[in-house]
Design a binder for these strands. Sequence first.
DNA 1: ATGCCTTGGTCACCAAGA
Length: 279
Amino acid sequence: MRLATWNVNSIRARVDRIVDFAVREHIDVLAMQEIKCKSEQFPFDRFEEAGFHVEAYGFSQWNGVAIASREPLTNVRTAFPGMPGFEKGHNGPDAPQEARAIGATIGGVEVWSLYVPNGRSLGDPHYFYKLDWLSALSQYTSDSLAGNPDLALALVGDFNIAPTDADNGDPAVVPGFSTHVSPPEREAFAALEAAGLQDVVRPLIPTGYTYWDYKRLKFPRNEGMRIDFILGSHAVSEAVTGATIHRNERKGEAPSDHVPVVVDLDLEGPDDDDRPMIF
DNA sequence: ATGCCTTGGTCACCAAGA
């Protein structure tokens, strides 16, 4: 299985290049974030013509997530248990949930396309919402893996955290003043790893960014950030055979400000047992 | 430590992104 994640920054503004990429790169599962449309506005036809099933979840011009897959998606969910909401500057258990998570089981893998809240600024209600949201995600991860340690679980998407200083190449993002690099955010990312997940791209691609701001020639200057990740449980991480960060997708006409991150998985399954042994 | 881009909605600006 070739699994990809991409914050597309509006699916309708660039559906051509996204479908072209998925076909050209033989993507089996494409998790998308920031589709920026309602579910019913998603260009399903374009993906279906190219041989994909799609589940999309959005209800305004903000946020929105989707998964396109060559194989059918089962057990589709539009929030993980305990996922907090946010509304008009306050968070809490009473606030409505946003369209930031969609999960499905595909080829034996539980895949979640996640758009972690931005945080806006240190101390903003949105910042505490971000930390609460990540805490609930860690809890869901540890609960799931406690129930089934062999579960193939992949949390992929835009985590809006640069886990190390080397992941922040943007001088406008200043430790002590900016979100994405604060200790509590980095601790929230570490908590996901402590819950049983591994960044499966990092061992193969130790450095490099996945996002460059549109403003001020950030891409030509290579002042980007690594904030998009593929986190996998043990069953996923041991199946990884390759990874690519498609930096070229930041070039050309009307790019997203993020690029796709891709892993190849050689998963154990019933098909393997049925396959004849040939030497 | 921000104005700069880019998108979408609503009606010439504004919110939001990170």
